[in-house]
């Protein structure tokens, strides 16, 4: 029985570590991607994913207790608020005139291929 508990603990830690690594990957995406919308997708997907992995991992470690319930509540709130905030942000950015970068671009330089016409509104979203 103690053996099972030990492995459950290890599994929880591994899940937490996986969540940590996922959130690093997401942050790298936020740093490297070329425009707001791609960054938004990197941030929102990995945020909910990392929260799920990490909080469930910790809940496994906590066992059947009040802490596990609190972790699940925190998870529920993150799952409720994080996608909503991302949605509201994308909505506001789109309707204030931020255009996504379309077409082929080089990921390494972050710049678009010169053949495309420049339609990206870039930094300033003007009043609609």
């Amino acid at each position: 029985m103690a053996d099972v508990l030990f492995w459950i603990d290890q599994l929880g830690m591994a899940l937490a570590l996986a969540g940590g690594i996922l959130s690093v990957i997401g942050s790298l995406g936020v740093l490297r991607f070329p425009d707001l919308y791609t960054r938004l997708h990197a941030a929102s997907i990995t945020d909910t994913g990392a929260a799920t992995l990490m909080l469930f991992g910790l809940a496994l470690m906590a066992g059947f207790s009040q802490e596990a319930l609190k972790l699940l509540i925190a998870w529920a709130f993150v799952m409720l608020t994080s996608p909503t905030a991302s949605h509201a942000l994308a909505n506001a950015a789109w309707s204030s005139g931020q255009k996504p970068k379309l077409g082929a671009f080089s990921l390494m330089s972050g710049k678009r291929e010169p053949a495309e016409a420049d339609t990206a509104s870039g930094e300033k979203g003007g009043a609609p």
Partner: peptide, 20 residues
């Protein structure tokens, strides 16, 4: 940044990471 929306995105994501 560069735009303010990028900053909000970063702040929001930062908040989630703080929770974790």
């Amino acid at each position: 940044g560069p735009s303010n929306y990028d900053r909000i995105l970063a702040a929001n994501s930062f908040g989630t990471k703080v929770v974790l």
